[in-house]
């Protein structure tokens, strides 16, 4: 899928999650204005997140572009997916070098803790952002989780 076609989908996802979990921004504090660059290994693009309720942004970026960021988080796509879905412990992933973090450590710790305080899984929220398509989307996320779950 070309990047321009992904942008409205990502915008929809981030707005939907923000609407469902306004408490997330309180936990983030000053870190909500930071730019988080997410490098999901194996994906053809990078994701850039700014979790600012006044100026929300989640966009796909080319791997060849120069992208200014405050924090870079990298790891396999499925590992990151399981982490934000609270299926694996992020500290354990870090100890094991399955994920790497550089840049503003305070911001990434705040984001990790804010996401971890969400009772519903992010995968559920992403799926519901797709309205009538939530079933197939959820099934795809579960399939990805199952693949990595069987390998770990």
């Amino acid at each position: 899928m070309p990047l321009f076609a992904m942008q409205p989908i990502l915008r929809r996802i981030v707005r939907h999650v923000a609407q469902l979990h306004p408490e997330l921004f309180e936990r983030l504090g000053d870190s909500c204005s930071k730019q988080f660059l997410i490098d999901a290994k194996g994906m053809p693009f990078l994701l850039l997140l700014r979790p600012d309720p006044e100026n929300l942004m989640l966009v796909a970026k080319s791997r060849h572009a120069e992208i200014p960021y405050d924090v870079l988080v990298s790891g396999k796509f499925v590992t990151l997916l399981r982490m934000i879905d609270s299926k694996t412990d992020s500290d354990a992933l870090f100890f094991n070098r399955d994920i790497a973090v550089t840049g503003d450590t305070e911001a990434i710790v705040a984001l990790r803790n804010a996401l971890d305080d969400m009772d519903a899984t992010l995968a559920d929220d992403v799926a519901t952002a797709f309205g009538p398509l939530r079933g197939p989307v959820r099934a795809s996320i579960d399939a990805a989780n199952k693949i990595v779950g069987s390998k770990t």
Binding site: A100, V101, T102, T105, E106, I108, V109, A110
Partner: peptide
């Protein structure tokens, strides 16, 4: 070890 003072610096050989 306040997070505001922690920095992780990767190198080209996958060290940290």
């Amino acid at each position: 070890s306040p997070a505001s003072h922690v920095d992780y610096e990767p190198d080209e050989e996958d060290g940290l």
